[in-house]
Amino acid sequence: MYDFAYHKPGSVADAVKLLTADPEARPISGGQTLLPALKHRLNRPTALVDLSGIAELKGIRKEGDTLTIGALARHVDVAESAEVTSAIPALARMAANIGDIQVRNRGTIGGSVANNDPAADYPAAVLGLGATIVTDRRRIAADDFFQGMFTTALEPGELLVAIEFPIPEKAGYAKMRNPASRYVMTGAFVARLRSGEVRVAINGAGPCVFRQAEMEKALSANWSPEAVANIRQSPEGLNSDIHGSAEYRAHLVTVMAKRAVAEAG
């Protein structure tokens, strides 16, 4: 790993100032993805801005129909939160199955969503629930946030502060994990919102999390695993690698969607 300067600001404003002043500086929260990337020299930041001391980025709150999770909430915090477990149990279960215990003790929801790894879990919940990303300067709808592999709507120096999840009527998540790396081969997050809107987000299968419109339509008419059982995802544009072909991942989309609906009940 190349060396870098290390800053630990106490406020979002100070962190943004540091990141804006130096375009080659990078924010770090849990570091469970960034540090391995730095070890591989995939990235060479001049400075790391440690966000862990910023109180504004912490906390999990339920207000009305919205569950707000601060960017620094670790996977273990989300998994064990009484607010999350009662409001969106599928989200708590998702958090409880990310990586392993040690990763969950460090990794954060903000880091995972801002990184937008195609095989990460949280992007599926954010898109599947139609959550809102709150940054230091604006609010971004999930539909506009995830833009491609490791690419989001965040501008240079812009910090993800919190995520606002609408509390759904029901939601479920199912994934097939790579047995060695534990990363998602293909996952499906399904939700029926209180507005009646049905959303289906697929992660792991393509270069970026995406919505499955055909399944959304079928589940709107008939919320049951059978409704999606015969919908075939096209393999076109899906990931194909040593872990699985695009055709295999396309097949998994239907299987995971069925399981996610069954889990949602």
Partner: peptide, 26 residues
């Protein structure tokens, strides 16, 4: 050294973490 094997697990403030994936400054 890639946070997969767990040989480096220690407790930080009572919780297990992989010490190969944590900066000393953190």
């Amino acid at each position: 050294d890639t946070s997969q094997c767990g040989a480096c697990v220690v407790h930080v403030n009572g919780e297990s973490v992989k010490s190969c994936t944590l900066l000393a400054l953190q």
